[in-house]
């Protein structure tokens, strides 16, 4: 027999064994759905909080600005896995216990809020000063200028970095596996250890691709949609 074909067969048997795949497909699908709504929840709450913080910071009250800056720096510096473990295994000691799902959601939402706050803030600061002046010269107050003139421009500028960051953070839903969240990776590794075969991991990887490739494409579409020629 040709040894190359044997290796190829072995490869197929390890990573693409159809009966294993068929058997564990339902649990992978469950994990996929759980990842979907966890990711959606993280994106919606994280970006909303980030936008809110950036707007509060734009008002430049020293105390709120300082608090937000500290929050953003800490959450950006800390590996999310550390924060997840801290919340999940540390907080019960002081009588607060949250499910793995809640801990993962909270951690990733806060991390995304921290990063997106910085990105939105950069967008606000990058909007030309003349835009503020023009709006204020017509009698618009600070808040309305921010709402109607500055933010629409700032948000457009921030779409590319924001999309990248959002995808990067959302992928971290896989970290939930360490605190027992039954998301894709958890379902895949469980199936892998039951079956002694790596095929479920391949299915997991495919699950992530199915979930995130459209997001990447959507991000690119949003980028072109929101771009306009610089004056």
């Amino acid at each position: 027999m040709n040894p190359e074909i044997t290796q190829w067969d072995r490869f197929l048997d390890s990573f693409f064994k159809l009966e294993v795949m068929a058997k564990y497909l339902p649990s992978i699908i469950d994990g996929f759905l759980l990842t979907c709504h966890l990711a959606l929840l993280v994106v919606v709450t994280g970006l909303t909080l980030g936008l809110f913080l950036a707007i509060v910071r734009a008002y430049e009250f020293w105390l709120t600005s300082w608090l937000i800056a500290v929050f953003a720096d800490v959450m950006r510096a800390l590996p999310p896995l550390v924060f997840i473990l801290l919340l999940y295994f540390g907080l019960p000691a002081v009588g607060i216990s949250m499910s793995g799902y809640v801990v993962t959601w909270l951690t990733l939402a806060l991390v995304l809020a921290a990063f997106s706050e910085e990105i939105f803030r950069a967008g606000i600061l990058a909007t030309p000063k003349g835009q503020w002046e023009a709006a204020r010269s017509t009698g618009l107050n600070f808040g309305r200028t921010l709402a109607y003139v500055i933010m629409p421009q700032a948000i457009r500028m921030t779409v590319p970095p924001l999309t990248n960051r959002t995808i990067a953070i959302t992928k971290n839903t896989a970290l939930g596996t360490v605190v027992g969240v039954g998301e894709i990776l958890n379902a895949a590794t469980t199936a892998q250890s039951f079956s002694g075969n790596a095929s479920p991991l391949v299915m997991g990887a495919l699950g992530y691709l199915i979930l995130f490739v459209p997001v990447v494409i959507f991000g690119r579409w949003v980028e072109t949609r929101f771009a306009w020629q610089k004056q």
């Binding site: 030309p128 003349g130 835009q131 002046e133 023009a134 709006a135 204020r136 010269s137 017509t138 009698g139 003139v149 629409p152 421009q153 457009r156 306009w228 004056q231």
Partner: peptide, 18 residues
């Protein structure tokens, strides 16, 4: 209220691009 009564035109126009 004061600015409402005083128009201003800038060198770089500063129209809202959106």
């Amino acid at each position: 209220a004061i600015r409402r009564g005083i128009g201003m035109v800038f060198q770089s126009f500063n129209l809202y691009p959106h």
